[in-house]
Simulated assay, not measured.
Amino acid sequence: MDTTSSTIFIPGATSGIGLALALRLKARGSTVIIGGRRTELLERLRDEHGFDTVRIDTADPASIREAAAEVLTAHPDLDVLVAMAGIMRVEDWHAPEGFLASAEAVVTTNVLGPIRLIAAFAEHLQQRQAATIVTVSSGLAFVPLAATPSYNASKAAIHQLSESIRLQLADTSVRVVELVPPAVRSDLLPGHAENEDAMPLDAFADEVMGLLETQPDADEVLVERVGLLRFAERRGDYPQVVAAVNARDPHGKE
């Protein structure tokens, strides 16, 4: 994808990784449309940064369809979709009341959300001369954190979805690029923005932008820090990495 002249829709971009990337892409010269559930926050970001905005709830199929229609009407030149949809929940799988409702919500948002987003834009993107679908998985797709089983599984599903649709869409103008974040300081979990073991948000976003610009043909966007998890099985130190990842609780404490 061209970071300087694309028209990009990023749902879930009112905070965290999504917003950090949206700001940088806009600064490079791309047209960026951000989506989120809170109208007042969207309006503030529009006023402060000049984004185009659309209200969208990625857990709601009707909301996705309505937002897609609104985006494509206003931006018929849209050529990049960043399927940024994700929640993370700590779960206890010893009894259903400790995990079932959470697991259903995680799968709805993290797996069905991106699937429905891609479905809403796939035909349009294939009509563009060059287009990109960016999916967002996680290092936890490759090495599990015991406290967040559904999140790990949802991101593993996104990894395989990305691999599969890349093969299917190879005969089209659409590229599929998978962004694989490590732990990043954000509000994905309570207190995680202060987790000193996680990568600072600005450092992550800056490195991602550099990779997008210097490795434009890469299928996966991998900052250096996520390599520990992404390639653990290949290196042969998977058990040791699993133990290291799980030596701390989700809030970064011993």
Score class of each variant (00 low, 15 high):
146 A>R: 14
18 G>I: 07
228 L>I: 11
5 S>G: 11
116 R>T: 02
94 H>M: 04
241 V>Q: 05
167 L>N: 13
124 H>A: 03
37 R>G: 00
104 E>P: 01
251 H>W: 14
178 E>T: 02
228 L>E: 15
39 T>Y: 00
209 M>P: 04
195 N>G: 00
90 V>H: 01
79 D>L: 04
92 D>A: 05
238 Y>F: 13
64 I>L: 09
168 Q>L: 03
72 L>A: 03
50 G>Y: 04
155 K>R: 10
155 K>C: 09
11 P>E: 03
69 A>S: 15
143 V>A: 12
42 L>Q: 10
226 V>Y: 04
75 H>P: 01
145 L>F: 09
97 E>Q: 14
100 L>M: 10
158 I>S: 08
122 A>D: 14
43 E>I: 11
224 E>L: 08
138 S>P: 01
95 A>F: 06
108 T>R: 15
37 R>F: 03
37 R>D: 07
69 A>G: 13
27 A>P: 01
26 K>Y: 07
24 R>P: 11
237 D>T: 09
183 A>K: 00
180 V>R: 01
98 G>C: 03
253 K>P: 00
14 T>P: 08
202 D>T: 10
78 L>R: 06
69 A>L: 08
240 Q>Y: 05
156 A>D: 05
181 P>H: 06
167 L>F: 12
128 R>S: 05
171 D>K: 14
116 R>E: 13
157 A>L: 09
175 R>W: 03
189 L>W: 05
15 S>Y: 02
227 G>T: 08
42 L>T: 13
90 V>F: 02
77 D>R: 10
131 A>N: 11
173 S>D: 06
50 G>A: 06
14 T>S: 12
239 P>N: 02
48 E>H: 11
164 S>K: 03
220 E>L: 11
45 L>E: 02
124 H>P: 10
143 V>T: 07
152 N>E: 05
226 V>G: 10
223 V>I: 10
175 R>G: 00
164 S>P: 13
6 S>A: 13
54 V>S: 08
133 I>V: 15
132 T>G: 07
57 D>Y: 10
212 L>D: 05
141 A>H: 04
79 D>N: 15
117 L>Y: 07
241 V>F: 06
167 L>W: 09
198 A>M: 00
2 D>K: 12
240 Q>A: 15
70 E>Y: 03
106 V>S: 04
104 E>W: 04
86 G>P: 12
121 F>P: 11
125 L>H: 09
146 A>V: 09
136 V>T: 14
92 D>N: 15
145 L>I: 02
18 G>N: 09
198 A>C: 01
234 R>F: 05
110 N>W: 05
179 L>Q: 03
194 E>W: 02
173 S>Y: 03
144 P>H: 01
153 A>E: 02
20 A>S: 15
224 E>D: 15
240 Q>M: 07
80 V>P: 09
156 A>T: 11
65 R>Q: 12
185 R>I: 02
185 R>V: 08
194 E>N: 11
82 V>I: 15
64 I>S: 07
50 G>D: 04
134 V>C: 08
253 K>E: 15
188 L>I: 15
